[in-house]
């Protein structure tokens, strides 16, 4: 059955893909299987926003610099060289194009999978944590940035 599924997916894929897509399941504990979740209540924008990240792992911290592959009100997606275990806490610093200082937001790794397009690279989804304060200035600034980008996209 498993072999049939792999064969099926490889024959239905576009010709330039020669390997079936593999999805890496990240396990927190041996008995727990993390389900890949994608709950979109916010629109994704295909923006490459430069960002720094610091992920808190059990053994220490993992930090790096990359660009987002897309952003939304709920979080960001990126590609990086390291595997990151959900639901690790992380801090993201976004270098937004609004001309102001970099914006630091708290989040957690919501999913991680091996990239089907880039070998030895991982696609990661980070979900931002809701602010505890409804007038959190950082949250407001991020909201305004997203809204502005949405308007630019749909109004030109």
């Amino acid at each position: 059955m498993v072999l049939w599924l792999v064969w099926y997916s490889s024959t239905t894929m576009p010709k330039h893909h020669t390997e079936p897509i593999r999805q890496v399941v990240i396990r927190n504990e041996p008995s727990v299987r993390v389900t890949l979740v994608d709950q979109r209540t916010a629109e994704r924008l295909p923006l490459a926003v430069p960002m720094n990240y610091v992920v808190k792992l059990p053994g220490g911290e993992l930090s790096g610099r990359t660009k987002t592959t897309n952003i939304s009100g709920g979080g960001v997606e990126l590609i990086c060289a390291e595997m990151m275990s959900p639901p690790s806490a992380c801090q993201v610093v976004l270098h937004l194009s609004d001309g102001r200082e970099p914006l630091a937001l708290e989040g957690q790794i919501s999913w991680c999978r091996q990239s089907p397009r880039q070998r030895r690279r991982f696609e990661v989804g980070i979900t931002f944590l809701s602010p505890t304060n409804s007038d959190d200035e950082r949250f407001a600034r991020y909201c305004h940035f997203i809204a502005t980008e949405l308007l630019k996209r749909y109004l030109g």
Binding site: T41, E43, S72, G73, A147, L150, L151, R153, Y154
Partner: peptide, 18 residues
Amino acid sequence: FGERVFTLFHAKKLLLTL
């Protein structure tokens, strides 16, 4: 739009409002 959709994050809701 459902209950969890925040206006500034959702193009349709944002543009309808604006």
